[in-house]
């Protein structure tokens, strides 16, 4: 069977701005595939091409084996798309929104009320179904969008930052929703800025930056590729500290994050931690905080791009 999503040397420019540059992705059926990257990396642009909203400049993109440019209606029938921005739906109630979109997906007229209820129920919105959607909170509006995206049981569900701006409770609802869809056999493409989300939900991730895949694989593979442990040091003099410990045998790589924290990739934190403190003391470099962690996807991103995703993602 053809992969759920496949792009080959996909490219899209806006004037001089190369948004997507030779992007190669392959998403197998049943995957929950995470598209990670900082703001402006090209996640939404990629998704807009995959959902036939934007014509690629060159290269090819196929969804369930159908080319997005040549067979757009085949593609549209097979995808459910939840946009990054909540869709504006006028004065309708939640139920009306869902029923109207169900009709637009050509579901049989008689079954629409039942299917609409089921979709609303799946996202926990049934109790609020008959209120105007404008009276919903941001998280509820997002869940309404999710309900609309799964109405026609799409083979591929495309979610653009589904938990953007949600509270912990609503994020967990979204995560459960994704896990349920996956059990139902759907393929899910999920763009996100939240690494913990990707770590938790995805069996494969691709980190993209400047419109290119920086690295891809399963979250555990990627984390293993970082090395054993990461020691993080907060100090006023990151550059000086870097210079004095760079030459140590146990150091694999050092990157300075955007907040000025030192991320030291090491074989074994048990050796590195006391050593860092000793060296700091010897050179009179004040250390404000020293922590160590198992590598996270954050560290993967940092290692491959020299930039930190976390700060970018935390910014509103």
């Amino acid at each position: 069977m053809s992969p759920a999503i496949e792009t080959v040397a996909l490219r899209k420019t806006f004037g001089d701005n190369v948004a997507i540059d030779a992007l190669d992705l392959s998403v197998e059926r049943g995957d929950v595939f995470g598209l990670l990257g900082p703001n402006g990396a090209g996640k939404t642009t990629t998704i807009r091409m995959l959902t036939t909203l934007l014509a690629p400049d060159s290269g090819a993109a196929r969804v369930c084996g159908f080319d997005v440019s040549a067979q757009p209606s085949e593609v549209r029938q097979r995808i459910g798309y939840v946009m990054q921005r909540v869709a504006y739906r006028g004065l309708l109630t939640g139920r009306e929104c869902v029923e109207i979109e169900a009709a637009l997906y050509h579901l049989p007229r008689r079954e629409i009320p039942v299917l609409a209820e089921a979709a609303l129920d799946a996202v926990g919105m049934l109790p609020h179904a008959d209120r105007r959607w404008t009276t919903y909170s941001g998280g509820m509006q997002k869940r309404l969008d999710l309900a609309c995206g799964l109405l026609h049981s799409p083979e591929v569900l495309v979610l653009d930052e589904p938990s953007l701006g949600l509270d912990v409770q609503s994020r967990h609802n979204v995560w459960e929703f994704v896990a349920d869809r996956r059990l139902g056999g759907a393929t899910i493409l999920l763009a996100t800025n939240y690494l913990d989300e990707a770590d938790r939900l995805c069996n494969k991730v691709a980190i993209i930056d400047h419109g290119r895949v920086v690295v891809q694989g399963s979250p555990s593979e990627l984390k293993r590729s970082v090395g054993a442990d990461v020691v993080e040091v907060a100090t006023r003099e990151p550059e000086r500290l870097r210079r004095v410990i760079e030459t140590e045998r146990w150091v694999k790589k050092i990157v300075i994050g955007e907040l000025g924290d030192l991320h030291i990739f090491v074989e074994d934190a048990a050796v590195a931690l006391p050593a860092v403190m000793r060296i700091g003391l010897e050179h009179g470099i004040g250390l404000e905080r020293v922590t160590y962690s198992q590598p996270s996807l954050d560290d993967v991103f940092l290692l491959h791009t020299g930039r930190e995703l976390r700060e970018v993602a935390m910014a509103p």
């Binding site: 995808i79 946009m83 869709a87 997906y105």
Partner: peptide, 14 residues
Amino acid sequence: DKETGYLDRLMSMP
């Protein structure tokens, strides 16, 4: 519809 992006949602449908 055009300004709020709902047109996009519609255009992604079959």
